[in-house]
């Protein structure tokens, strides 16, 4: 039972200055247990701000965040991380370059590991090896290698493992394949799907790829100006095509959604 409820989230950055920007505008969203939601929206729509609000990276101006019947609105970011895993666009953010693969995993696993004197121990290593071998990147034989020596794709795959290693109630993916080359991105995306299915994770994924947003997961939301303006599930979503989606957005919001970047993605 891991349900995320967001009630009336409000946040204005640089309030009271000429640069004031409303990033979240009374945003409401209920994420059901086992949902895999893809999040669309143009640049500045508030997608990343929404994630940072859930992660507790800043104080909200108002509203409530409830995870699994627990009000976490005032909870410190590192405490929330016990139950929320997150992956960013930049593969360098999720891992410590000067520590080995094994040590990185051990650190991520600390929150759920059984007590032990040494961070890296035989019992956990076996588990890590098994997890790494599921990635099919050969990392299980390089557990003593420094993370900094891996490629971006390998590091992102390792980050994915670290974000999910403690079986979080919620997984947040912020365009986590956008900085990778197409083949690697495809591979990481495939790994993401596998892990989410295997562990029955509840997940929110920001993406710019409209086509894959409609294909992946069971639900798609579209954000604009700090609100959720479209929420598609079931048959409506199954039958939706990208042009129809754009049309629907224009009808509901009154202007075009496509940013330059989205148009670019549409052509490819």
């Amino acid at each position: 039972m891991s349900q995320l409820v967001l009630k009336n989230l409000r946040k204005t950055f640089e309030k009271g200055t000429p640069n004031a920007k409303v990033a979240l505008d009374r945003l409401n969203l209920t994420v059901n247990d086992g949902d895999f939601i893809t999040v669309l929206g143009s640049n500045g729509a508030g997608k990343s701000t929404l994630f940072n609000a859930i992660l507790g990276k800043f104080r909200l101006d108002g509203g409530k965040i409830i995870l699994d019947d627990e009000d976490i609105t005032q909870m410190k970011d590192y405490r929330r991380a016990l139950n929320i895993g997150c992956l960013y666009q930049n593969p360098l953010l999720g891992t410590a370059p000067n520590m080995t693969i094994e040590e990185n995993l051990a650190l991520a696993y600390t929150r759920k590991a059984r007590r032990s004197f040494f961070a890296v121990n035989r019992r956990d290593s076996e588990y890590f090896r098994a997890l790494l071998s599921e990635l099919n990147l050969g990392l299980e034989d390089r557990m003593k290698t420094r993370m900094g020596l891996l490629s971006g794709g390998q590091r992102q795959a390792a980050s994915l493992l670290m974000a999910t290693i403690a079986e979080p109630k919620l997984l947040l993916l912020d365009e986590h394949t956008a900085a990778l080359d197409p083949a690697t991105a495809e591979n990481v995306l495939h790994l993401t799907r596998t892990i989410i299915e295997k562990r029955h994770l509840t997940c929110l994924m920001i993406t710019h790829q409209m086509q894959s947003a409609l294909q992946m997961g069971n639900r798609t939301i579209i954000m604009d100006s700090g609100r959720v303006v479209l929420d598609l599930t079931g048959e409506e979503r199954d039958n939706m095509t990208v042009p129809e989606l754009l049309q629907l957005f224009q009808k509901n919001v009154g202007r075009d959604m496509a940013s330059d970047r989205m148009l670019l993605d549409l052509q490819t």
């Binding site: 410190k76 970011d77 590192y78 405490r79 929330r80 991380a81 016990l82 895993g85 997150c86 953010l93 999720g94 891992t95 410590a96 370059p97 000067n98 520590m99 990185n104 650190l107 991520a108 600390t110 929150r111 670290m162 974000a163 403690a166």
Partner: peptide, 13 residues
């Protein structure tokens, strides 16, 4: 090495 990662691992950095 990576303070943000420490926070993400639910450790008080």
């Amino acid at each position: 090495d990576n303070e943000e990662m420490v926070r993400s691992s639910s450790i008080n950095a």
